[in-house]
Write a protein that binds this DNA or RNA. Structure first.
Lengths: 236, 236
DNA sequence: CTATTTATTGACCAGATGGTCTATACCCTC
DNA sequence: GAGGGTATAGACCATCTGGTCAATAAATAG
């Protein structure tokens, strides 16, 4: 029991930072203040990726602000490799957009360089233990940004303005099939009605949505919460 | 300075919980352990909404598990009123999906009923001060769910499988215009080429994406990260 | 009971769309 | 300089799409 805990603590770490002074500072800090094993360091993202493939560390500390290939892209690439590496992002700024994007692409933690050394060790500890760690202040920032991005999305159009609300139930069914890229004939078969009827519905839909063709109708539906209930869908 | 802090602390609170015992328990706790002013309580969401309109509290504690109108819907409705009320969700379960949805629709905090009373007071404190508060354990859950929902979305298709990657630059431009619901003629004008050329490109796009018409092409593009860079877009 | 809304269908037509084949010109690579 | 990929363009044609007008039946609202 004790052994396995100790074993877990001896997680191997790779540090990536284009500033050599920062790099060695963090390295020393970790070596002195913690049990972690810094197996390698890198001053560029591309070198880092090679090292990660070679050493397969448990933890990577990745500076976000780097020239050439930036840290976020690097994180995305590493995550794509699916090596089980757990990445902690590291920057000087608490820009919510950066935090959001880092967490989105799979960073397991996000730390500011200005934070106390104990916080860094704690973060590594938590992440090494399989958790996701964001300091309270950053997590607060994240959520504000997160909620804001929703408000703009969903609350931008009120119910009265959302033309989708004026569609009848049958028209919604037809539109639903249209958003799956089905032709008049196909819709007619699916709904057991004639092609002409479908055309009538489609025409009514166009008028209500104030569009001229199915592509625009589909786009309107997608942009105004028509099939939102289906699945979580996030994109930047 | 001191006064304004004290003033802030005297935030008015409304508590909503269909279980009367819980309700009065929380009420007592807040009245004894904190400076907050419980101006009203409600055992149903609809009553709560009326009370909120009447009292305009700073804080609402909202139980999520309620019959009739559930707490999440209630939160969404209250947020839509845009009264500046700050809502803290309250449940017995740390279901990540619930947490995610609560935060999505604008809850400023999320607390488990099993948590220590001090934690509840602290949460109200933070939220009353304008912050968003999630206890570390819940925030961890949230992030796991958050990242998972991405992985399914973005990593579901590898680069080789994503047929969009086989499009030439010109074809991408054409597709981009198609996803805006523009006709052959319109595309031709925008790109300063003939309508025939557009048709050729479109046909090539269809073959590469293995679809039969523009609607399907647009849907494929939308579902496979074609215009993802534009805006944050989240939906459930 | 009448008016309105909704769902249904037909007919007709212009124009848009999609499929196929062919052809030229440019650029890049081998 | 031959070959491959890309962008351009025309011709032809079947089909699909969208617009309009008209009509019936059922359900709902007033």
């Amino acid at each position: 029991m004790r052994r396995s805990l100790d074993f877990k603590k001896k997680a191997r770490v790779i540090i990536v930072d284009d500033n050599y002074d920062h790099l060695s500072g963090i390295k020393e800090l970790i070596e002195i203040e913690s049990d972690f094993d810094v197996v390698a360091t890198a001053t560029s993202a591309s070198v880092a990726i090679s090292l990660i493939k070679k050493y397969r560390p448990e933890i990577v500390l990745m500076d976000i602000n780097m020239p050439e290939k930036d840290g976020l892209t690097a994180i995305a690439e590493i995550e794509k490799l699916d090596l089980g590496v757990r990445i902690i992002a590291l920057t000087g700024y608490d820009d919510p957009d950066l935090i959001f994007r880092a967490m989105k692409i799979g960073a397991k933690g996000y730390i500011l360089k200005t934070m106390a050394s104990a916080q860094l060790i704690y973060a590594i500890d938590e992440v090494a233990a399989g958790k996701i760690y964001l300091p309270a202040t950053l997590s607060s920032r994240f959520f504000e940004y997160f909620q804001q991005s929703f408000k703009e999305e969903t609350q931008s159009v009120s119910d009265e303005e959302n033309l989708l609300n004026y569609l009848t139930q049958r028209e919604e069914e037809v539109l639903d099939l249209l958003t799956q890229g089905i032709t008049y004939k196909g819709v007619a078969q699916k709904l057991f009605i004639s092609e002409t009827t479908v055309k009538t519905h489609v025409n009514n839909i166009f008028q209500k949505l104030q569009v001229n063709d199915r592509t625009q109708a589909v786009l309107y539906a997608l942009n105004n919460g028509f099939l939102n209930r289906r699945k979580v869908k996030i994109a930047i």
